[in-house]
Design a binder for these strands. Structure first.
Length: 481
RNA sequence: UCCUCCUUAGCUCAGUUGGUCAGAGCACCUGACUGUUAAUCAGGGGGUCCUUGGUUCAAGUCCAAGAGGGGGAGCCA
């Protein structure tokens, strides 16, 4: 069927009346009457359904007796100009073949609005909805756009390992990878699990970041990026966290923190532009979906319309301020003075909470903010230490509604500084000998960052829950499908 | 992990101070009507009111525990 089948997207864009076509797709709705029947057919190639007209003079209508929402059909027919109002073209069926029934007593999707919570429970079928069709097409476009952005700049894609033997990345709880018998593991003389008997001869975990490996590549190849799955065993139950998510981690030699910020801003804007240029139909649908959902909200609580929000991002440079400046702004802010913050800002050194980030982005600057030069105590060991002795060249990109979408830094390239910091923070240098080697041999100023792909997706699609922008979300207590 | 809210038909939900409270729309079935657009109109079938225990003459409704889910927080991307 592959060679003869035409996709609905293609047909609607370039079909001509009289053209003979073969369609394959799934029924969204069926409307049957005495003289004519209509089937709204969707094949996933576009948000739009194709109207199939079944004329009883050409086709025995009894074939439609078992055709309900969700059934799969093959239609042999011809393209005709539609006399109806909803579409320019439609297909008049010459033959209708029911490929797969969908028993309406059991098929859970109906031609009506379903809650996102319900659709999560039927994640195997939710691709068949307009919303998840749109999200999936946008997600693909963003994946493709990311590779295109970096490829066009001469970056090399690096496959960093999924299984890692290093537990020094400091990015959170890890999932252990083991083939030992969980009920009866081999024990050492001290009575601990003997991982030397395990598959890799040592304790191994799923990666929480490809950064350290990406640095190794950057310090030979210049500009590289990873785009792979990332695993965090944190017991995080929020609309912004997944146990398994996809992360983009560029790592660049000869970039200082300003180059790093420039790249991050350029990339985010490129991707927003890419979505607007390639996914407008789906974005318009997602925009109206969001408007519907927010109808019951008060005017001031509603978000900016999706397209407008995306255009707005393109139109303004991101605000770049230091942590110290942010603290000053927050200290003097109304919510801080009025005691509206759950965590009041009292002194320099405090970690910023979501409420503070949101205030800066959504209230004070009203646009994306890049915060830099955080206190070294609240940041990772590998970040470049500033001359003041108390801050590091970290940068977090904060987005409205999402919070931290990117976290990155200039890396500490000085061997002695890095080693000292590792010792202070209790990072086992013996396990990290390979990382330290890059600073012993031909070290160079370099920078990088991590972009949470699903957080980008939240922003681009306007969806509110991260479980709805990845096909099969993994969260605490949930690994169904 | 903490706070908070929710769980009633396949789906989305209503159900007042505990007392005809087993309801609506959609879906499905029957019929009518129709180049229709989530078609429309009339009728019909469909329920472990999340589970367990308790209070009460009486529990969908109140209490307790548990399960599942949402929102917020922490951690972060």
């Amino acid at each position: 069927m592959r060679k003869e089948r035409i996709k609905i997207r293609e047909l609607l864009a370039g079909g001509v009346p009289g053209q003979q076509v073969v369609l394959g797709g799934w029924v969204r709705t069926k409307r049957i009457s005495k003289n004519v029947a209509f089937i709204a057919l969707n094949d996933g190639s576009t948000l739009q359904n194709l109207q199939v007209v079944v004329n009883p003079e050409l086709v025995d209508l009894s074939v439609l007796d078992e055709v309900y929402t969700g059934a799969s059909l093959r239609i042999d027919g011809r393209v005709v100009a539609s006399p109806g109002a909803g579409q320019a073209l439609e297909v008049e069926a010459l033959k209708v073949e029911l490929l797969g029934k969908a028993d309406p007593e059991h098929y859970p999707l109906q031609p009506k609005k379903h809650s996102l919570e319900f659709l999560r429970e039927i994640a195997h079928l939710r691709f068949r909805t307009n919303t998840f069709g749109a999200i999936t097409r946008v997600r693909h476009a963003m994946i493709f756009g990311i590779h295109k952005f970096f490829n066009d700049k001469g970056f090399l894609n690096i496959h960093s390992p999924i299984i890692t033997g290093s537990d020094a990345e400091g990015a959170g709880e890890m999932f252990r990878v083991s083939v030992l018998d969980a009920n009866n593991p081999p024990l050492t003389e001290e009575g601990k699990v003997d991982f030397s008997k395990d598959f890799f001869g040592k304790e191994t975990n799923l990666t929480v970041s490809g950064q350290l490996e990406a640095e190794l590549a950057a310090l030979a190849l210049g500009e590289v990026y990873t785009f792979g799955p990332t695993f965090r065993a944190e017991n995080s139950n929020t609309s912004r966290h997944l146990a398994e998510f996809w992360m983009i981690e560029p790592e660049m030699a000869f970039y200082d923190i300003h180059d790093n910020m420039d790249l991050a801003e350029e990339m985010l804007k490129y991707l927003v532009r890419y979505a607007l240029d390639h996914c407008m139909e789906d974005l318009l649908f997602l925009q109206s979906r969001q408007e519907d959902e927010e109808k019951q909200k008060k005017q001031e609580d509603r978000s900016m319309p999706l397209i407008e929000k995306l255009e707005f991002i393109l139109a303004h440079p991101f605000e770049r301020i230091t942590y110290t400046e942010a603290i000053e702004i927050l200290k003097e802010s109304k919510p801080n003075k009025n005691g509206k913050f759950q965590y009041p800002i009292e002194k320099w050194g405090a970690d910023l909470q979501s409420e503070h980030e949101r205030y800066l982005v959504e209230k004070h600057f009203k646009k994306p903010v890049i915060l830099t030069d955080y206190p070294k105590e609240i940041k990772a060991f590998y970040m470049k230490q500033n001359d003041d002795g108390v801050t590091v060249r970290a940068m977090d990109v904060l987005f409205p509604g999402i919070g931290e979408i990117i976290g990155g830094s200039q890396r500490e390239e000085r061997y002695d500084h890095l080693l000292a910091r590792m010792q202070q923070m209790g990072i086992p240098e013996k396990e990290m000998w390979w990382y330290l080697d890059t600073r012993r041999f031909g070290t160079v100023v370099h920078s990088g960052y991590g972009l949470g792909f699903e957080r980008l997706m939240l922003f681009i699609t306007g969806m509110g829950n991260i479980r709805d922008v990845i096909p099969f979300p993994r969260t605490p207590q949930n690994a169904e499908f």
